[in-house]
Design a protein around this nucleic acid. Structure first.
Length: 634
RNA sequence: GCCGACGUAGCUCAGCCGGUAGAGCAGCGGUUUCGUAAACCGCCGGUCGGCAGUUCGAGUCUGCCCGUCGGCUCCA
């Protein structure tokens, strides 16, 4: 079946086309043409547009890696063209750890094709054909200069840089096939994208592939099954998470701690309903702006009453605030809730616990005056950093996301809000990057992104100044002059959603939770039946200290029972036999370790694990890996 | 939602060109009493994602739907 070509592709020609209409947002405007077979197989035109002149993105690698990835992408494109005559080409940029290239082909690619393409690429690499650069061409182009790279019989018109010759391309591997919209716009036709990776030396490729395996091993969906953490049941509904008993314990601990740190910081914790009358979502603008994602309506009283399931907690918190008139003396008023919301996300976007349809936000709305706003933002900011560091997330980077093109509220308000965020960051002297236009339609925001144990970046916390709802709901307080004044509404989350956060934690810890969160803090394993009474005493003692203990009463091989405790990810295994019973000691073995520490006094152990629990210490088997070596060549 | 792949017992997977399901682990019942990552024997367990269709006959072929996975788009 022939798919229609992307709408703004050029017609095949015998020479480089001169039709260059406009510069796309993606930066590279290109036309495709084909030349007589023998000499030239395909031609790309890359104009030097503003975007093209822009610096490389940091994750595309330094200049050498960029060239390597870029060159591999072009060699791949050449190989694809040989195997699929008539193939058309989209973009093929370097990306973090590799490259991709988009193609329009007569038939869908299969995994087998990847091997064939790889083989062709190997041939080209063996050939060691030089990448030749020409700075102009015989072709007319309205604006910009044409820059051509050529290797073998294959001509690329693009800006480079490339490696000197195809032989300089290091070990590579094609990884996956995926669909991708032409120019990233979902109204456009879809192309087939091949992802690949390439490295200067074999060891780096091996390391990278090992890292991919490590990521797979940590996948929260896999660990979620193995450790009985959560389940998503088709019959119950996709995107809806069942927290199994083990993970429920983790959540309970997190929530308890969350409540404590919020009460300590002057937050008022509330509960609001899960469904609400249509009126409120008409007023808030949610139905208009967000209706497609909302569950509902629920029709009652013959359809005259409409209710919707809440997708956000803000309207409820505003109603809490408005339950009485507030004096400036009461501000800032910090209203917080572990608020469960439901959003109908498109099917293809769901992903384990990281992208679901029902989730609980640790949501807070801070109502204050403009004078107080930057101070409040600063406090949230400090809290967020403190909070994230407890989990061992490191190397936070801060982004200030400013007004997007499509937005609500006057420029004057946006100026004020952005200024408040900036000042808060400035006072704390933190380095931050500006994400121009990255704000949401109703608010500029500060995002905190952190790195996990294997160097991946996660969205940590976000702070926004809402410019929409205070107006719509006429949220006010009484100022010192006795006048009603518009309140500022700061919206913030720390976890984001508990589902996403905990899903991320599973991967971050690789299932090895610290003592304070672990569902099985101690496994008590008697060597044989004769030690069972003592084992019971040990378990009882620990339970008195509020530890979660698994007492292993089954008969069987000790080795096997230790293995099972390791597999359940118990933080500690206490093996007790007749010797321990006589001495009042335990033999301590830590999760992940093959060594045991014998003859530890029970009291000493209790003391140790209590300290570990109270300090929320990261587990001994937690290792912070180096961030991806990926972006430069040492 | 879109492109592609996939969907067999609680889990991981086998099942050749269509002839009416098989293993390991888990579970259960025994046996084993054993000092730190898999003791032995037996048993139970499957509307082969769902609904249609082709066929004498479908887990195997076709269509639609649901779900999952890799991405795109979107996002907490």
């Amino acid at each position: 079946m022939e798919r229609p070509p992307p709408s703004d592709w050029g017609r095949p020609r015998t020479a480089v086309t001169k039709r260059v209409d406009r510069v796309g947002e993606a930066g590279w405007n290109r036309e495709i043409a084909s030349r007589p077979r023998k000499r030239t197989k395909a031609i790309f035109v890359c104009l030097e547009t503003d975007m093209a002149k822009k610096e490389r993105k940091p994750d595309q690698g330094d200049e050498k890696l960029y060239a390597l990835r870029h060159s591999a992408a072009h060699v791949m494109a050449g190989a694809v063209l040989e195997l699929f005559p008539g193939a058309k080409f989209g973009f093929g940029p370097p990306i973090q750890d590799g490259f991709y290239y988009d193609f329009d082909l007569a038939r869908p690619l299969t995994p087998d094709d990847l091997g064939k393409i790889e083989a062709k690429m190997q041939d080209v690499v063996k050939h060691d054909a030089p990448f030749q650069h020409r700075d102009d061409s015989e072709d007319e182009v309205r604006d910009g200069r044409v820059s051509i790279y050529q290797h073998d019989g294959f001509v690329d018109l693009c800006k480079g840089p490339h490696v000197a010759s195809t032989g300089k391309i290091g070990p590579f591997k094609l990884l996956s096939i995926a669909g991708a919209y032409w120019r990233g716009n979902e109204r456009n036709p879809q192309l087939q994208r091949i992802y690949g990776t390439v490295w200067p030396v074999q060891k780096q490729l091996d390391d990278y592939l090992k890292r991919l395996q490590e990521i797979e091993r940590r996948d929260h969906r896999v660990l979620g099954k193995e450790l009985e953490l959560f389940r998503i049941d088709e019959e119950l509904g996709s995107g809806l998470v069942l927290w199994l008993p083990n993970l429920s314990i983790v959540r309970e601990e997190l929530e308890t701690w969350w409540r404590k740190i919020h009460r300590d910081r002057g937050y008022t914790l509330v509960y609001t309903p899960h469904i609400a009358h249509e009126k409120i979502y008409l007023r808030s603008g949610h139905l208009e702006k967000y209706g497609e994602n909302m569950y509902g309506p629920l029709l009652l009283d013959d359809g005259t009453q409409k209710f919707w399931i809440k997708p956000m907690n803000c309207p409820g918190h505003i109603k809490v605030f408005q339950s009485k008139i507030h004096s400036y003396r009461e501000l800032p008023l910090r209203i917080g809730e572990l608020g469960t919301v439901y959003r109908y996300e498109r099917g293809g976007t769901l992903h384990g616990m990281l992208r679901v349809r029902g989730f609980t936000q640790d949501d807070s709305h801070i109502f204050c005056s403009w004078d107080q706003a930057q101070d409040e933002i600063g406090k949230v900011f400090d809290l967020a950093l403190e909070f994230l560091s407890v989990f061992g997330y490191t190397d936070p980077s801060i982004y200030l996301a400013t007004r997007p093109e499509k937005r609500l509220g006057s420029d004057e308000l946006w100026d004020k809000a952005e200024a408040a965020l900036k000042t808060a960051l400035g006072i704390r002297e933190v380095a931050y990057k500006v994400d121009e236009g990255g704000g949401v339609f109703y608010a500029p925001k500060i995002d905190i992104r952190v790195h996990d144990a294997i160097g991946r970046e996660w969205q940590g916390a976000t702070v926004q100044i809402d410019l929409n709802l205070p107006e719509r709901f006429d949220v006010t307080f009484v100022n010192e002059k006795g006048e009603r004044e518009r309140a500022v509404m700061i919206h913030r989350v720390l976890f984001g959603s508990l589902e996403r956060f905990v899903g991320g934690l599973i991967e971050h810890y690789a299932g090895n939770f610290p003592v304070w969160l672990n569902w099985e803090q101690v496994a008590v394993i008697p060597v044989r039946e004769s030690a069972l009474p003592y084992a019971r005493d040990v378990a009882t003692r620990l339970r008195t200290e509020n530890f979660r203990v698994h007492l292993d009463e089954q008969a069987g091989d000790l080795r096997n029972r230790v293995k099972e405790a390791q597999q359940r990810k118990a933080s500690y295994m206490l093996v007790v036999g007749d010797k321990e019973a006589a001495a009042g000691t335990v033999s301590v073995r830590r999760r992940g370790s093959r060594d045991e520490e014998r003859g530890v006094a029970l009291d000493a152990f209790v003391d140790r694990i209590k300290k570990e629990r109270e300090s929320k210490a990261l587990p001994a088997d937690f290792a912070q890996h180096e961030p991806s070596a990926g972006d430069s060549i040492a």
